[in-house]
Amino acid sequence: MSTPVLAADGGEFQPPGVGSFDFPPIVAGITKPMVLLVLSIIIVGVFFWAALRKSSLVPGKMQFAAESTYDFVRNSIGRDMIGGKDLRPYLPLLVTVFTFILVNNVFGFVPFLQLPTMSNPGVPYGIALIVWLVYNGAGFARHGAVGYLKHQTWPPGVPGWIRPLVTPLEFISNILVRPLTLSLRLFANMFAGHLVLLVFILGGEYLLLHGGVLGMVAGPLALILSIVLMFFELVIQFLQAYIFTMLTASYIGGAVAEEH
């Protein structure tokens, strides 16, 4: 539809692509995602510090907000997935993962920043690697090497003749693929969401400026839609942080659980 319009205008529209995520260094090899990463831990740190500085039994506004976040991770995610007595050692990891990813995701919604840090795959890979080490380490510590492998790949109640099929599959899905899906899910959601927003905003801008009469109608429509989409993305950003934390908790819970 837009091709004749573009052709009439003469300028060629370059759709945003994977190149939109390759940021040139601002100064001395420091890129925008790096700044955002540092900013995110400052935000989270200050948030918790300000909330807990004058902590009391009856929470104030700030403490209530921090407590709701903490409570959400602790009770809605952690306790459901890991269970009461094993939860405490892994609680800091869950809280860190949730707040870190949430803040970095929500950067995609904040004006002027407008970039979910996790839409570059480096950090999700790193966090997924940490999670992989933690849950496998927890399983080894709990069940021993052989016990843990049996725990993860030898589901009880499976008929003997299907074991040659089930056990490698369980190994692949439980040990090998989990960190990949964990990181790629986060990365791909943020990447795709940001790309869709870019298409709407840049395309709308292009239509408005170079699209002629039809573009004058279609351009603002696209920009309005981009705002709607941005709120939709906000939901996704929150959901992805939640899913990442929940899966982390679920993997740890599965690794340290007693026999099924």
Binding site: T181, L184, R185, L247
Partner: peptide, 16 residues
Amino acid sequence: ILGFALAEALAIFGLV
């Protein structure tokens, strides 16, 4: 949501 995440993994493999 857990089921959603697990089912979504397949589409993510496609994208990757």
